[in-house]
């Protein structure tokens, strides 16, 4: 058997005796790196032990150059492991721990030198990981961590451009759309990007995706984020018209109909007085769409019934002369 039981027993013994020597460190290296397919990288106790050896045994007797080198070796070791196990939390976690311990460089004119180059490398690696699997949520989480902890913060516009690139490569990449909601919120809040004009550009981008892949929910979800709680009446009315155009082309598009109902209900609840001719007409349009959705999407028919049910109650409470 390839599995090295003896190695594990020795390690457990060493750990119990708080053996923080270089020999103990190389035993953990052996266990964690030489059999990347055999030894489970989720063996978290060994990662913990390794960090304890470094903190308590090795760092105190090392120069900052040596510490930097040790940590870079660990980053290189886990890069190999990540290629085999891209979704193991413990590996990502160990990288983060390494970053947090990168020392200031001995070059007094640029103490951030090592940290800067390490963070740049991390950003490069996480981009390669996202090239391999653009939905890997651990990689995205790590990316956000890297960006938020960079020694010199990168412009958020650069991150916005990154999401544009990912979205244009694949409209179905909801992880990239999600990231865009976070980056834009922050850019709007800081005033670095003007919300009103950027909103127009976002609607253009997302409409392009909706018209290209109307059955893909990623773009529809993003569209819903742009609409928000529907406080802007003119945007709501304009987007309802756009979706109507698409619905005329694709009369069986569930996402068109579902979004149409949602936005028309927002129009009713936020902007139109109850009981007017216009609001009754819109309510009836919603009820018709909901009945079509029940047919088209029977798996979720109860949801459409529940939404319609509330509206029917509202209609029947109005004067009979106004309802048809």
């Amino acid at each position: 058997m390839v599995f090295d039981e003896l190695l594990i027993l020795t390690l457990n013994e060493n750990k119990k005796n708080k053996d923080w020597s270089k020999d103990a460190l190389s035993l953990t290296t052996q266990l964690l790196s030489t059999h990347p397919d055999i030894i489970n990288p989720e063996f978290y106790t060994i990662w913990n032990y390794r960090r304890n050896i470094l903190i308590n045994g090795i760092f105190p007797i090392s120069s900052s150059e040596e510490i930097n080198e040790l940590l870079n070796n660990d980053l290189a070791m886990t890069t190999k492991a990540l290629k085999v196990h891209p979704k193991v939390y413990w590996i990502w976690n160990h990288r983060r721990w390494c970053l947090e311990h990168i020392p200031e460089s001995s070059n007094s004119s640029n103490t951030q030198e090592w940290r800067l180059s390490t963070w740049e490398k991390e950003l490069f690696i996480v981009e390669r990981m996202l090239d391999a699997d653009s939905r890997n949520f651990l990689a995205w989480d790590y990316r956000r961590y890297i960006l938020s902890s960079m020694p010199v913060r990168r412009s958020e516009r650069a991150e916005l451009a990154y999401t544009t690139k990912k979205i244009e490569a694949n409209f179905s990449n909801f992880s990239a759309w999600h990231q865009r909601t976070k980056v834009l919120s922050s850019l709007w809040a800081s005033g670095e990007v003007d919300r009103v004009s950027s909103l127009q550009k976002e609607f253009e981008l997302v409409q392009n995706a909706m018209f290209t892949l109307p059955e893909d929910q990623s773009a529809w979800l993003y569209h819903r984020w742009l609409i928000g709680s529907g406080d802007d009446k003119s945007i709501l009315e304009r987007e309802i018209k756009v979706i109507q155009t698409l619905l005329d082309e694709q009369p069986d598009s569930k996402w068109c109909m579902d979004s149409m109902v949602t936005y028309k209900l927002m129009l009713l609840n936020n902007h139109l007085p109850r009981g007017t001719r216009e609001s009754i007409d819109i309510t009836n349009q919603c009820l018709t769409l909901l009945a079509q959705l029940e047919e088209l999407d029977p798996m979720r028919c109860q949801r459409y019934r529940d939404i319609g049910g509330c509206k029917v109650d509202e209609l029947s409470s109005l004067k009979p002369s106004l309802t048809r």
């Binding site: 949520f137 995205w140 989480d141 956000r144 909801f174 992880s175 999600h178 990231q179 909601t181 976070k182 979800l221 819903r224 984020w225 928000g228």
Partner: peptide, 16 residues
């Protein structure tokens, strides 16, 4: 909490 009503692993993370 995200705009889609869901929650992520940490603040800022995608709903899962």
């Amino acid at each position: 909490r995200n705009f889609d009503g869901g929650f992520g692993r940490v603040a800022g993370a995608e709903s899962h």
